[in-house]
Write a protein that binds this DNA or RNA. Sequence first.
DNA 1: GTCTATATAAAGATAGAC
DNA 2: GTCTATCTTTATATAGAC
Lengths: 192, 192
Amino acid sequence: MNTHSEARERVLQAAERLFAERGYIGVTVKDIAKEAGIHHASLYHHAREGKEGLFVEVMERVLRNHQAGIAEAVARGGDDLRAQLQGIADWLVSQPPMDLIRMVHVDLPAISASHAEYLEALAHEAMLEPLEEILTAAQARGQIAHPNLGHIAGGLFWAIEGLHSLPDEYLLQPRSMIASELIEVFLKGLTR
Amino acid sequence: MNTHSEARERVLQAAERLFAERGYIGVTVKDIAKEAGIHHASLYHHAREGKEGLFVEVMERVLRNHQAGIAEAVARGGDDLRAQLQGIADWLVSQPPMDLIRMVHVDLPAISASHAEYLEALAHEAMLEPLEEILTAAQARGQIAHPNLGHIAGGLFWAIEGLHSLPDEYLLQPRSMIASELIEVFLKGLTR
DNA sequence: GTCTATATAAAGATAGAC
DNA sequence: GTCTATCTTTATATAGAC
């Protein structure tokens, strides 16, 4: 394993899509093998550590990918906080749900403690810290006044990410447009 | 079954706690029986429809309980939108996570379509509609100006509910206090 | 109402042939 | 690299004794 064969890549991509959407216990090894187009026994040839090792490897990729997508959105937004936030929101709604509640309460308790700690720290670093940083930077530029930004970043993240709980049939507008309204409320407030 | 014995009530409460926290596939019948203090075979005496029937019955109770807790918080808040929102937030953080993303993407696809439809509608009615209603009422009183409140209610819900993804060790303040800051931002905005 | 015993299916995983 | 066959464990569920 750990070679870069074409079949191994198919396994990783299938696992990535499925784990990101349904989480660790919501996906079976057979589901992954089926989507990759091989027998489930063959999967162990490409992922010697089995399901848990595959999960850790793949979540690492997913989280790093989020980190990169968010960083790019931030860079494109320049010094404009609203543009940065909208870019992040567009990225998040374009990806499968990244359900950190499920991850913390369901997925991580099902794997080894050391793997769980690692993924939890990585998730924080990849998803929440970038948001916190642009808020802090905007504060330093005098664009926002709020004192306690760490938790506000989390609130912003969840307000956007929660859009994934709306089934498509319920949507009156694209998620990106709803996100835009939410960002406006975060910046300007509901009152007056 | 459907009698109101003491043992049946213990089963329902165990199932309620576990399903609410880890979802349908994250909980086994043995987990529930163990927490209720009976053998897992005995569980079928109290829940003839098995795991899925138990899940539906119990999620109904959980959602109705949320509905009642939220209604009470709203009533206590009188005509003060901030007090109403803080009451709802205090209620939500006092309960196990109600992870609607997991519910929509993981739990509901694992049960029958009719059960899934029913629970999805009930979740919307119990969790989101009350929030939407107090925003609409505040708008009618002239306290808020925003035009499109349906999705704002969802954003508010998730900003609060997302606090459950913060492990207790990460918390610098009680969740209720963080929620208070988030509500302030929703009402007044981050800028200036 | 609760248990033991058991049926049945599905899951993760390995051995070994091709 | 991929398969068939098999092992082990776990899950849901039922039958029937007490």
